[in-house]
């Protein structure tokens, strides 16, 4: 067993850190898109628009039932062969799209559960004062459902950050790709990937701390 080359690792840290913004950008962009898509699907699942419901069910089932890596390959390598206009899409965009669809399927279920967790009598009260369905959802149900779902959604965001490492397989030079390139020159693969692992770990730990504070804050909400 050889000793770890700590100097090499320390030198590598700033290089890899330089790619953290790209990682966060991909995760944040996918999170925003996934939240919008998931909320729409969740509301649809609850109010059940005839015709649309079967499509949403199928969508959720497919994206939960197949691996993210397979989905990314389908998007990036597969679809352009079928739809010519998709050849323009670069790896980062494809990764964001893939992460969006994959996680939207999971988040839709979490938000749907949270929506049904809002006391039914409040729905009726909203209707009884003459609110439209849309007003009731926007002003009464979704604000409460978001709070119920928030801790779960943060978990998915954490999974998403880790999931961005798969963009490497689409030829994107993100943290993994950068480490791979560095290691190809130095042959210090263990050190290089260890640095990547540690940086991911620290990011996720920071988010978990934030999540705990968020939960404490949410538990206090609506109680004063």
């Amino acid at each position: 067993m050889r000793a770890l080359d700590l100097d090499y690792m320390l030198g590598l840290v700033p290089v890899i850190l330089g790619y953290v913004p790209l990682t966060l950008f991909m995760a944040a962009a996918a999170m925003v898109c996934a939240l919008v898509l998931a909320s729409l699907m969740a509301v649809e699942r609850v109010v059940k628009v005839p015709g649309l419901d079967a499509v949403v069910v199928l969508f959720i089932s497919f994206f939960r039932g197949t691996p993210l890596l397979v989905q990314l390959f389908l998007f990036y390598y597969g679809l352009p062969q079928v739809f010519a206009f998709l050849t323009q899409i670069n790896g980062v965009t494809a990764a964001i799209m893939g992460l969006t669809l994959h996680f939207a399927a999971y988040m839709a279920e979490a938000i749907r559960a949270a929506i049904t967790g809002v006391d039914r009598s409040q729905w009726e009260a909203a209707q009884s004062i003459g609110m439209t369905q849309a007003q009731m959802m926007r002003r009464i149900v979704l604000p409460q459902a978001t709070r119920i779902a928030a801790p779960t959604l943060v978990n998915y965001f954490i999974d998403m950050i880790k999931g961005t490492s798969l963009a490497f397989t689409l030829g994107v030079t993100e943290m993994m790709g950068a480490a791979q390139k560095e290691a190809a020159g130095s042959f210090l693969y263990f050190e290089a990937f260890l640095v990547v692992a540690l940086i991911y770990w620290i990011m996720v730990e920071a988010l978990s701390q934030g999540q705990k504070r968020l939960e404490r804050h949410l538990n206090k909400a609506y109680a004063r």
């Binding site: 006391d119 009598s121 409040q122 009726e124 009260a125 209707q127 004062i129 003459g130 009464i140």
Partner: peptide
């Protein structure tokens, strides 16, 4: 609905 109002057995206030 707009011409009537309803008081519920379990209050049904908006919790948020």
């Amino acid at each position: 609905r707009r011409a009537t109002s309803f008081v519920f057995q379990n209050y049904a206030l908006f919790a948020n």
